[in-house]
Write a protein that binds this DNA or RNA. Structure first.
Lengths: 328, 328
DNA sequence: CGGGGGTGTGTGAACGTGCACACCGTGGCA
DNA sequence: TGCCACGGTGTGCACGTTCACACACCCCCG
């Protein structure tokens, strides 16, 4: 900027004004713009951040990166959604991978180093050190997915897992199924536990704990494992609520091998409405998880804190329409 | 830092030395560390970047984000691989989504603003404005996947698509197949075009252009479309090279519906060795794409430029072992 | 003719750090 | 005794910006 000022014979202050707006005469502006082109000047945002004390950037942290980045079909859509609204607000979204203890330490430094003005955190555990640091720094942030019971200062956006699970289970049961089971995944997460709660609520007195297979993950392999277990325990099973579409796909594979027709012998429903849902044969009835909207809302909540509009923003629960296809 | 100095009664210079190493007496170090804890001091990395003229961060740009982020099974593994080596070198990897013209402009500013010391660029087109800016800024960078014919200053890491395609096609043909076809996807990309070239080279005189179905994308739906086309053109087809595992999965669905056994009636091979490959029934023979290694190498190349070791680093082509499973 | 308000410009002080340099005391050595 | 190397410390400058302030000028109005 100093060079530009020297080349144009006008002071730094005026150069700053043509860049950021302010009273500048036409000839001064022209001279400076010529000098900028001549010198090949590009503003140094790092220096601007230093004095402005903000970076116009928001971090996007996916904790549990292995499973998320490689398996979760929603994470990409959430990112895209968040980027959409941050982009309109002229904020740069930067995603950070947290994959090891070394990453945790470095990302912590990064977050506290003034690189970002806020953060969107996907599937944090409350005991996570990064969460602690963010709360401590008072960095504007939003959780996605898991309502953390600690840190009430940080809002979250998510879906009503229990309600959605209850709704789709009720609908499945209403198709005349008599032995309705569930492949319950990831019970150590809120989302997993809530889906089981909803399932249970839907069946009420008809709930049979024997017809719940517990599996560790939301993935295909878990679906295979869970369905085998259910078939063994109750060969007459005729309805299955799978905790995710991937789980449902694995379950359908097992049913096909066992010679059971879907939905004729067994009705099956999933959760997520991910790309799995349309790839199965027949296509899957499922709970639509509005991943893009989740991302958009999370970004919105961060921006609201950045603009300091009123007190702590409230949490957001997004509606999850049921998509009824052919599998039940 | 000033506050720490004041609280401990020792100068800023010494505070800097305890943080960055240098001659410091034990008592001074203790006093300063106590003051750091008391004040709750966290170093401001933005200020450090300003004076050091580097950020210890490397950008990870995925152009074509829609398809990549949501569909490409490799992108996550590449990111993880890159992050691994950057992490060891104590560099922060930041991924940037480029999803619109507005994004392009903002990311350009971000890259030239001193936020990153280097960049890893996935599937750039040579005419891409971001590529131009990076070359112009002389920002250390590495391309992943597509050897760009322009900008010789920027190295790339990729795989030998043509060679790999030729090798697996030869192996497929060697199983005694008489009518070997290909579902060729994404011919507008180097990777897609090269895979077709390799297929053609493998068959030599036996190559029959009628048995090549061209589809737009590397995805499941394209596989469905391509396989239908091939079956129509040549009902006696008994071997298929699909341009990706997802394409192969789509093709197998069609074959199953048509009552053709895999591999008894039709042998089929894919490309990528993504999670698709083990989910199909039977599991897919395919070309292993070492996504994680690609990421690692790309990061390595950027770091080498950062350390300014010798002249421009050479390009890297990684080996792609064939994984032979049951589909052919 | 003097004063006030708006427009346009220059200047100095931050922002939080790293680094070069200067400085001080001590001990070893000629 | 003088010199030097070395551990240990303080100070000023630089990095590239923004912002507050001061100043100059012009025009209009009382």
């Amino acid at each position: 900027m100093h060079d530009v000022a020297a080349a144009s014979g006008i002071s730094r202050g005026t150069v700053s004004r043509v860049l950021n707006g302010g009273y500048v005469s036409a000839e001064a502006r022209a001279a400076i713009e010529a000098a900028i082109a001549e010198v090949g000047y590009v503003p140094n945002t790092a220096a601007r951040n230093l004095v402005m004390r903000r970076s116009q950037a928001v971090g996007f942290l996916a904790l549990e990166p292995h499973s998320l980045l490689l398996e979760d079909p929603n994470i990409g859509a959430i990112m895209l959604g968040a980027n959409e609204v941050l982009s309109v607000a002229d904020h740069q979204m930067v995603s950070l991978v947290v994959d090891s203890a070394r990453d945790t330490e470095r990302v912590t430094r990064y977050l506290s180093g003034g690189f970002v003005d806020g953060a969107i955190i996907v599937s944090a555990r409350t005991h996570d050190p990064i969460t602690r640091v963010i709360a401590q720094l008072k960095l504007p942030a939003t959780f996605v997915g898991h309502p953390p019971d600690l840190h009430h200062s940080i809002p979250f956006v998510g879906i009503d897992n229990a309600g959605s699970a209850q709704a789709i289970t009720e609908r499945l049961a209403a198709t005349g199924r008599r032995h309705v089971g569930m492949i319950a995944a990831a019970l150590d997460r809120d989302s997993g536990a809530d889906r089981l709660t909803g399932f249970r609520a839907a069946l009420g007195a008809r709930f049979d704990p024997r017809l719940v297979a517990e599996v560790p993950l939301y993935d295909y392999a878990s679906g295979v494992k869970g369905m085998r277990e259910l078939l063994e325990r109750e060969p007459g099973i005729d309805g299955v609520f799978a905790a995710s579409d991937a789980v449902a796909a694995g379950a359908m594979e097992v049913l096909r091998d066992a010679g059971r027709g879907v939905p004729s012998d067994v009705g099956i429903v999933g959760f997520d409405d991910s790309s799995w849902a349309t790839r199965t044969q027949p296509p899957l009835s499922t709970v639509h998880q509005p991943a893009r909207e989740i991302g958009r809302n999370a970004a919105e909540l961060v921006l609201r804190q950045l603009r300091d509009e009123g007190p702590a923003p409230a949490n957001v629960l997004l509606p999850t329409p049921i998509v009824w296809r052919a599998s039940a």
